[in-house]
Design a protein around this nucleic acid. Sequence first.
DNA 1: TTGAAAGCGCTAACAT
DNA 2: ATGTTAGCGCTTTCAA
Lengths: 320, 320
Amino acid sequence: MPPTLRPPAARPRRVTIRDVATAASVSTATVSYVLNDTPGQTITEATRRRVREAAVALGYSPHGVARALREGQSRIVLLAVPSMRGGRGLESFVAGMSAELRTLDHSLLVTTSEDGLPREAIQAIAPRATLRLADFLAESAWRGPVLGAFDGRLAGLEFHTLTQLRHLAERGHRDIAFALPDHPDPIADQRVAHVEGAATSLGLGPVRVLRLEMGEDAHARRAAVRELAEATPVTAVATYSDDVALGVLGAMAALRLRAPDDLAVIGFDDGEAGRVSQPALTTVRIDAGGFGRRAARVALGLDPGEWVESPSEVIVRATT
Amino acid sequence: MPPTLRPPAARPRRVTIRDVATAASVSTATVSYVLNDTPGQTITEATRRRVREAAVALGYSPHGVARALREGQSRIVLLAVPSMRGGRGLESFVAGMSAELRTLDHSLLVTTSEDGLPREAIQAIAPRATLRLADFLAESAWRGPVLGAFDGRLAGLEFHTLTQLRHLAERGHRDIAFALPDHPDPIADQRVAHVEGAATSLGLGPVRVLRLEMGEDAHARRAAVRELAEATPVTAVATYSDDVALGVLGAMAALRLRAPDDLAVIGFDDGEAGRVSQPALTTVRIDAGGFGRRAARVALGLDPGEWVESPSEVIVRATT
DNA sequence: TTGAAAGCGCTAACAT
DNA sequence: ATGTTAGCGCTTTCAA
């Protein structure tokens, strides 16, 4: 027996388009046309049936890598997130994006990368599109098409912020503060801008920005909150996250200040902790599923379509 | 000019191994050998230099998809996580795994999939290995090699649980409870088993298991915690997560019970909320970076090596 | 010491 | 209405 060119590894034999072609007594081209519903081909229904039946009989499934080589890119969209520690917002965003992509015969894969694009992964899989969450949340080419406009004006984090402040305004608060973590954050400035914009459009007074220590130094937090409560007219504080809200409430508890009477507090992104702690935290629940779906469509160059439902709502609990 | 076969899309011309070969006046085979340091080849240092210089001069980088097609699998390890809402433990795990894989010329990509393998993604990128976090945490083929043995006995969640209970034991507690969320959880049973194992090995009494309501029903939580405090000898509660701990503390606050005097509480996985809330939560900080590195090595079929440092420590704050 | 060429599985231009 | 085949970029066998 003459030596033959063996495959690189002892690769388990896989069912290819060729096997299907043989089984259906057609060419590989025909198989490809049928299985991809390639437009502009004239293939009899009988042949189509034979091909499809052969494919399922053999358990054929297309080899994504070969297809990607041929097409120049894989049917993958890569989402770069800064961290695995997400909240409800991120989770629903990813779920929505993933579901929509599946519908479009693509897959979502996530990579963590603090800054810059995940070059190695891009080299490795040639994704159809790459989307950095930070870019998407901030101003960027993505923003316009993905966010679209809800309620004729704004959407995204900006919209959720409006939801958050509107609740405070409806409760009669006019002097508010916005508390955010004191550690560096790529979208901090933007969040502050959103708050200021929302406050203006709601006719509130100027917003006091409080950068809250989020480490072990409870004294610092207490001092900051005391100052806020005693030396300013602020009656309510909106926060960057539920965690920050819990920090404010923790300081208030230590100072024997009560929410909402001494200071009302509203969180952001409805985590588990705020729900079960005492007092239970009023917060904004973000359903970013619609965003995810839109981001998916935009990533593939499709029309994102219209908004269907409101992407955020206030969960009223005990602190406002 | 005769019609030529155009590439499928107007694909931007990319630098291939061929270009490098031409520039260095060698064959593509030689380029491949040099760039991959293929063992068993006799190529003069001069040639190697020429090839490498040509590669950098042209800005060549290998096409992962083509390589994957040829080799049968891509240099990707796929990690399937149940959700994007991770804690410090997951974050460090992913970071460690990712860093180690980079070292080994691979990339980590994450996919969310509640149960089962992410088949579409696997088809699409032919990953070198696929690892479900749930399998990894639970008993499975992965467990043995990845966890190895720390301190001669156990590692992983089991080890961290021991860390958690040991702290309670050292504080003199003998009757403890373990509180976990009442919603379904793939690793709940396992966690309970760990706690019981740790309690036994520490010579503690039988562990009371408390499935805590984690929804909006604060009354249910209060009732459960009151029952625990008043009708049982339990003096301390270890929890499944910081969130559950916050739920216990919330109920205690409503009941005017104080930690640690009435009931000591220790959380798990050191989240931001526990650190800033009042009273500040004692918890277990998990550094899963080492696990991640080990998981990476095992995924590639390498020896994970020995443990270097302790993977968990107690962060003592005010509740114990 | 190096090169020629096969072939991974697929799509699509072109031929029949 | 369907088949033939080039070629995506790479690795590796075999020959020179």
